[in-house]
Amino acid sequence: MVRTGILFILLFAACENNIIQRAASDYFQYREGNWWQLASNQDTMMVEVEAVDTLLQIECFTVSFGGYPKYLLKKPNAISQYIKIIHNFGGEDYTVVEDFIKRIELPLVNGNAWQDSLVDSIFISGAWVKAKFYIIGSISGFESVGGYGDVYTIAIKNVEIVILPDTVITDTIDVIEAYAPDIGLVRFEDNDGVFDLIDYEVE
């Protein structure tokens, strides 16, 4: 009986399917002062959570990705990102789109895919300027990484389209991010390369 119990526990421990870890952990440690240092073969990147800011009367975190701020809002069902598309005409800036968009759907579940979009237009000097921003995201998998736990890999495609009377400007950015439970960002991949976590501090 004791042997059966021990065998059961060993089999259970060998399963490596940490469902409780994935269900109970916080993968997005957005608290002021938290930081992650990532490095590629050629460069390093610092991701820092800065002071809370208020945009559109909503409190959100300013997260600096290598000096470029992103304004992120963490809700139980999503990590949302503040998007503002400005069109300059005649030396003056006009805001075409301004809102929060769902960046990552929560909770993280393997295989989940989502998309969200913002569309708006503005009439400037006798012509319509239309802008669209959309995000297509998916969780491409998770793997158990020693020291980190079950790490989710998320692919995010950001597309910004500005339609002017005579032209269409499209800007696409593909990123792959990996998040570890109760740590946060451990891997980041974009056109500049692959960055892996080398140091971090989370509270």
Binding site: F12, N18, I19, I20, R22, A23, V109, N110, G111, N112
Partner: peptide
């Protein structure tokens, strides 16, 4: 006792065992 956990978001599912 043993526990079977199942998470579901839309059509995506995960499952596993716990104690």
């Amino acid at each position: 006792g043993p526990e079977y956990a199942r998470r579901k978001l839309g059509s995506s599912k995960e499952s596993g065992y716990g104690f």
